[in-house]
Amino acid sequence: MNDVIICRCEGVRLSEIEQAIREGASAVPGVKKRTRAGMGPCQGRVCQRVVLQLLQQPPSEAGESPDALQRSRSPVRPTLLGDL
């Protein structure tokens, strides 16, 4: 059970995130676009910190750049289209 699920909304496993990093993802948005981690209903609230830590092993400068984290996206919480 080493291959744990990192993104619970999209069911993305550790191995998939490591693969994305090997393919060149250097920040959270790059992992997101390759694996869908962070694209689900919680918008990365659960997995983003873990993904960032994985990106920093070995430690890199990714954490210091403002682009390293994905943006928080409007409308922040799932919102009914009818309520817009």
């Binding site: 918008q43 996206r73 409007s74 409308p75 799932p78 919102t79 289209l81 817009l84």
Partner: peptide, 11 residues
């Protein structure tokens, strides 16, 4: 019918 669907992000 889309009134009952949720938006989860905008970009």
């Amino acid at each position: 019918k889309m009134a009952g669907m949720r938006v989860i992000r905008a970009f």
